[in-house]
Structure formats: C-alpha cells, structure tokens
Amino acid sequence: MAKKTAYMGMLVALAFIFSYIESLIPINVGIPGIKIGLANMVTIVTLYTIGVVPAVVLSLVRIVLTGFTFGNLAMMMYSLGGGMLSLLVMVIARKTKLFSITGVSVLGAVFHNIGQIIVAAIVVENSSLFYYLPVLLVSGVVFGVVIGMVGAVLVKRLSGFIQKQDIF
C-alpha cells in the first residue's frame, strides 16, 4: 500500500508539473481552448501501464489541484468536463483494440475539447460556443498525435520496469 501511494503521488506530481508548464506556454491564436495536453501524457502512460482506476484517480486529483492552484472555479469545471469525457472515450477506445496508443490519444484530445465546450456552453447557457469546435478538433488531432507518439515510446520503455516493481 505504501509503495502504491508513493507511486501514485509521484505520477500526480508529474502531471501537476506538466499542467503548470502548459499554463506557462501561451497559445494565442484568438480562439480559447487550444491546449497541448502535456498532462494527458501521464494519464495515457498510467492507463496503459497500470490500469483504468489509477488513471481516473490521477486525472481527477490533477484537475482539482491545478484548478485550485493556477486557475479558478470556472476553469476547473470545464477541465473536469473535458478530462472525464476524454478519459471515458480513451478507456473505451483502448478496450475495442481498434486503435494504437496514438489513436487513443487523438480521441482523448478531441473529446477533451468537446467536453470542455459542452460544460462551457452549459455554464454560460449559450450554445453558440460550438462555433469554436471545428478549429479545436483540428488542434486536438495535431497535439493528440504528438502526445500519443511520445506516450507510446514511454509506455514501451516503462511497462517492463513498472511490472518488475510489482506494485499494482
């Protein structure tokens, strides 16, 4: 148990740092919601090397922590919407075995953007926000491929190591 806690703590810290780094990189193209999704790399590696439940716990804790530290309540709400929908889709996509890690990452990125818009549209009670969706879909695909490729390398290198530790 202690080993498990320490390991999860390390992953949360890593995801937290990635979220922080991402908040320092301004992407200013006049459209809100475009993200690189660095923290999703940690989620993907957790999902593939450890399992579904730790991945869910990890992203929940990460979103709440970063929401309180770097953001505000509104930000946290749409991060939660995006994060949970994205994870749900990634878990299903992985189960179907139709896609590689890169494909799963792309779906995760795209549905993160969709989830965010849904929550934002509910918050402001205005469906015109879906106007941004096409651009966000393209950015999701681009960053999803990049993060997925890096994630795939990490999973390949780390899975043996993590299984040897015999923690989970």
Partner: peptide
Amino acid sequence: MKKNDVIMIGIIVVIALVALC
C-alpha cells in the same frame, strides 16, 4: 500508428474542415 488510427484521424479532420467552411 495503425491503419485504423489514420482512418479515424482523416474522418475527424474532414468533418472539422467541412464544418469550418
């Protein structure tokens, strides 16, 4: 990347571009 990945990405990009236009 698998073939399925490429097909899925293609579909998303086409939908996005059509919607954008």
